Computed example of a mutant assay.
Amino acid sequence: MSLELTLALTLAALLFEAAFGYPSLLLARIGHPVMWIGRLIALLDRHLNRDAAAPGERRLAGVGALILIVLASGMAGLVVQVLLMRLPFVGLLLAGLAGSALFAQRSLHHFVAQVADGLDESLEAGRRAVSHIVGRDPEKLDEAGVARAAIESLAENYSDGVVAPALWMAIGGLPGAAIYKGVNTADSMIGHRDARHTHFGWASARFDDLINLPASRLAGALIVVAAVFVRGASPWRAITAMRRDAARHRSPNAGWPEAAMAGALGIAIAGPRHYGGKLSVDGLMGEGGRYECTANDIRRALALYRAADGVMVALVAALALVAWG
């Protein structure tokens, strides 16, 4: 698939998802592509990740599982793309509609906004809302902790759920974005370092880190540019925080958008957090910023997110025009 077509496809998919999201009727009837990938990953985990196997065998089995996930995701994307692109123009729109399921622009905004609305109601409502988007222990979070968790999730998932699939769709069409989504889902399901997945999930976790490297840096840069258009945000603070703090994050990728957002808004996020009853000490993003975040800071972060997403869509559109011209 040529670059002008992949860029046009990416633009169509982004616009469809921003406008309509993933229809609840389809979700109820057939589920979501991430759910389908998740079933495959759970099946591979159940049958290949044997408790009695030695660590080396489990790591090798994890490599095999990753290869199967990549092949299954890529082939599914390729089949859909080939079938739909046989139709001139209409096929591109239909492929864009299918590809929109691989983005999370609308749903991400919805779930983060619910945290701000929940905090307006009560701390308990804010904790319930944030539990849908973060893995940490919500009962240990005060109001500022809930707000920070929501902002961190917004920044990280902007990179993972929006920028990265857009980048890989622009490069590789539907197969590229589908492979990315498969690997990212595998990382979220088996890439964590619990006793069962330390070795089996190693390949998925490392490969996810690798394919997110360019997107995380791009997401940080987009947030910097977006800060120019958002009242009260500072692109210079965003650049400073990103250069200073991104490498402190335990993830090689999440620190870039988180630091950029924290710096732009003049707040501090990340730091010590509890997961499964255990304390995880992480670097502070936006050091020197205000740590006591509020529901209003979540809404400021959402305004910055909308601007960054708009900048990205405009960039894809401009590149598509240049490619076609």
Rank of each mutant, 00 (worst) to 15 (best):
E4I: 07
P23G: 12
R29S: 03
V34Y: 08
I37D: 00
G38Y: 01
I41N: 09
D45M: 01
D45F: 00
A53R: 10
L60C: 02
V63L: 15
S73I: 05
G74N: 09
V80E: 00
L94K: 08
A98Q: 04
A98R: 06
S107P: 00
H109P: 00
H110Q: 13
A113P: 01
D117S: 13
D117Y: 06
L119Y: 09
H132D: 00
D137S: 06
L141T: 06
A144H: 09
V146W: 04
A147E: 13
A150P: 14
V163T: 05
L167Y: 11
L167P: 12
G176Y: 09
A178V: 02
K181C: 00
M189K: 14
I190G: 07
D209W: 14
L213R: 15
R231V: 01
S234P: 13
I239L: 15
T240H: 14
R243H: 01
D245Q: 05
A246E: 05
A247W: 02
H249R: 03
R250A: 15
G255P: 08
G263P: 08
A264D: 07
L265K: 08
G266T: 12
I267G: 02
A270T: 11
M285E: 06
G286N: 07
G286I: 11
G286S: 10
G289L: 12
R290K: 15
T294C: 04
N296K: 13
I298L: 07
R300D: 14
A301W: 06
V311Y: 12
M312R: 03
V313S: 07
A320N: 02
G325C: 11
